[in-house]
């Protein structure tokens, strides 16, 4: 059937109607233009940040002639004598965030299980807000508490000065607890109830149901939480810098000082001149952080795809 674009007779009589249409059309366009503008701005900002970090970071190798493999695998960091081995920092970042995830994940998943499976009412009303509160505490506070409580404790119990990889990892693990917990809680709460009933209906106990049905079903979502937690730990600078000791070498024990990419950047950025090789080397580390963030986002995307079977 051919579309009829003529105004039907019953509308022609009413003079208000065409005006009304025009008015709404303007609204539609204003909304569209406004949202498009916001998105465009966002894209421009992201692209320029990536471009800026990448161009600065690459110029260490392209302009200043530092070798890429020497940067990635060199263990000697002496910017004043032109030695730019960033491996200790890369190592420090990976080890602290991995350890933080290893410490935080079991705690978070168990806390989430408690909140959703054991005491759903109390969990939702009291525990979840408390956990969210934990996420809102500024990182400098975590670092401060770590420095004044955790470090002296570690010093009195373990060998060494207290500051070091262990202190950094523990502070980070507490910081990422809320991230993993709230994602795991959401995943567990959205699990269809009849799936649990099916398990109970076969005579499985609560723990058999949790370990055999609940956890396996929401595992991809829990892993998403863990990866996001690791991403946060990887990017956290201040709190780690306060407790890790900032020694530019690969530590041989958990209680030895070390550095992370972020702590080195924050400590040194004000001591270098923009455009100098020392400054560019810091940008190269920022580039590594950025690339790792992309990797984390990619992993989360892959996990999400797996959830939708």
């Amino acid at each position: 059937m051919k579309a009829n674009h003529e105004t039907p007779p019953f509308m022609k009589a009413n003079q208000e109607t065409p005006l009304l249409f025009r008015k709404h059309r303007a609204e539609e366009w204003i909304g569209r233009i406004y949202t498009t503008f916001c998105v465009a701005l966002l894209i421009v900002i992201i692209v320029s940040i990536v471009y800026f970090v990448a161009s600065k970071g690459v110029s260490t190798f392209a302009v200043n002639g530092v070798s890429l493999s020497g940067f990635l695998f060199g263990q000697n960091w002496q910017p004043d004598s032109d030695k730019f081995g960033a491996l200790p920092f890369i190592f420090g970042s990976f080890v602290t965030s991995l350890l933080a995830a290893v410490i935080a994940s079991p705690l978070s998943v168990c806390a989430a299980l408690f909140m959703t499976e054991i005491t759903p009412n109390w969990g939702k009303k009291v525990l979840q807000p408390v956990v969210e509160l934990l996420a809102g505490i500024p990182s400098v506070v975590y670092g401060f508490i770590g420095l004044s409580v955790l470090v002296p404790f570690l010093r009195s119990v373990f060998p060494g000065q207290g500051i070091g990889v262990a202190a950094g990892s523990i502070v980070l693990s507490i910081m990422i607890l809320p991230t993993i917990t709230s994602i795991a809680t959401d995943a567990l709460a959205s699990l269809p109830r009849n799936l649990k009933e099916a398990s109970y209906g076969l005579g499985a106990t609560r723990w058999q149901t949790i370990s055999g049905v609940v956890i396996p079903t929401v595992l991809p979502s829990i892993l998403t939480g863990v990866v996001l937690g690791m991403a946060r730990a990887f990017g956290e600078a201040l709190a780690v810098q306060m407790v890790i000791g900032n020694a530019p070498h690969i530590p041989s024990s958990l209680f030895e000082s070390a550095s992370t990419l972020t702590s080195v950047i924050t400590l040194n950025m004000s001591n270098t001149v923009m455009g100098s090789v020392q400054n560019n080397a810091l940008w190269s580390m920022a580039l590594i952080l950025l690339l790792m963030t992309f990797v984390f986002v990619l992993v989360v995307r892959l996990l999400e795809r797996r959830t939708k079977i």
């Binding site: 009849n194 799936l195 009933e197 209906g201 076969l202 005579g203 079903t217 079977i309």
Partner: peptide
Amino acid sequence: VLRQNIGMVWQRPNPFY
């Protein structure tokens, strides 16, 4: 034990993932 002796099937199919 009781539920092993008395099986149940629900309105909406609920296979495990």
